[in-house]
Nucleic acid binder design. Sequence first.
DNA 1: TAGTGGTCTAGACCACCTC
DNA 2: AGGTGGTCTAGACCACTAA
Lengths: 251, 251
Amino acid sequence: MTDLATRVVGAEPTPSFSPLYQQIKGLLLRSLQGGEWRPGEAIPSEMELAARFKVSQGTVRKAIDELAADNLVVRRQGKGTFVATHAEERTQYRFLRLQPDDADATALRRRLLECRRLRAPADVARALDLKAGESVVLIRRLLLQGEQPVVLDEIWLPAAPFKGLSAERLAANRGPMYAYFEAEYGVHMSRADEKIRAVPATGDGAQALAVPEGTPLLSVERLSYTYGDKPVELRRGLYRTEAHHYRNVLT
Amino acid sequence: MTDLATRVVGAEPTPSFSPLYQQIKGLLLRSLQGGEWRPGEAIPSEMELAARFKVSQGTVRKAIDELAADNLVVRRQGKGTFVATHAEERTQYRFLRLQPDDADATALRRRLLECRRLRAPADVARALDLKAGESVVLIRRLLLQGEQPVVLDEIWLPAAPFKGLSAERLAANRGPMYAYFEAEYGVHMSRADEKIRAVPATGDGAQALAVPEGTPLLSVERLSYTYGDKPVELRRGLYRTEAHHYRNVLT
DNA sequence: TAGTGGTCTAGACCACCTC
DNA sequence: AGGTGGTCTAGACCACTAA
């Protein structure tokens, strides 16, 4: 069999050897980024991909194994391999690590506060890799446990890929917000980074969360990325932690 | 080749099939728990293990792959596979997710406050899976950035496996505390769970961290496990987040 | 029954480390 | 030179799904 590795390495000025399956993974990633297969769709079978790339099925398998480990695809025995999607997930809030202290607490409800367009402040522009002053969408919303507000979110999105996003359309959507972004704008969030601090409640935040000024709150700044490590969402959350905690597993 | 899977399945009342490599992984886990190979030591080569378990080298490889993914074992090409250890790690604080906002900040220094034995309070006993009133060791310490206190830790350990632990011996140790626990008591921390909240500084905590009462702090409760999901350490930390943040990667 | 992913094997060769 | 893990292949068979 022709060695794809050799061919690709040969084309590079610096060899920088990488195993065949890594190169296959890279090709599959490109197809995912390019939208050849959309979230929820099946990608070709391992045998088909092996034929396409002229490698053995085992090599394709190892490439797909890594994509599955990164949560970019989902394998289903007997059916095929599918592009990961937020649409068919059991969890309403994919990246929310906040949990009720009582396991039997009711699910969180959403309340949209506002959704408007504005010019990106410098810090937001920097985080989203935009030019200062480019148009962004700002969404503010509450998550409530019963009548009790628990989370105040401020969501910043670049306006360009999210053209036409409005309070009305957001309010009409039932499922996860990330599923909506996927279906409506073709933007899939695959990974996120969070920075967490303890801060005192102030002004608007204190009022929206119905706590006295100065109450300690978790400040969670989340930057979400789509395929190719492109940042596409900056989310600033304030969490009340009297009856909830942020849970993290360290390995 | 004889099918180990069939043999094992045959012995079970409920078949509950599990693939061969999972069974091999289980056997390797048992050896790790039993201390057949100590942290830092090499485990037998893939070929040797394949011969011992009467399976192919590829099957052993897949079992070891999973152990490596769980950070229980480290592979080194050309040398062998080694039991994970905290002794030879670049990071002083293996599970500490707190980072300085400025990347170029100096490393954290430790200051031991106390180390004493006492009867386990009910909540600590429950977390560590002990009977109420069993003997535990309590360590309190500070982490400082320059002269500025940043973290106040309260560390609870079951007294039995940590016999002879004292302030003097702790103070004499230079490297990571987890490396010391490994070398001295043969206890390796492999995994941990954290619950994070925002709380106001009070009393002792405020004083130790040199902040006014009521200052918002991160409260981080960490339960660490050794092989076999046995809890062996409860750590309650208070983090100042004026110049630091807790960083988390979501996938 | 046919197609998919999942497991297991056996063997070849490569990259890296040590002696 | 010899041993280790890392890659790649080819083929067999199993488990699950759907028509």
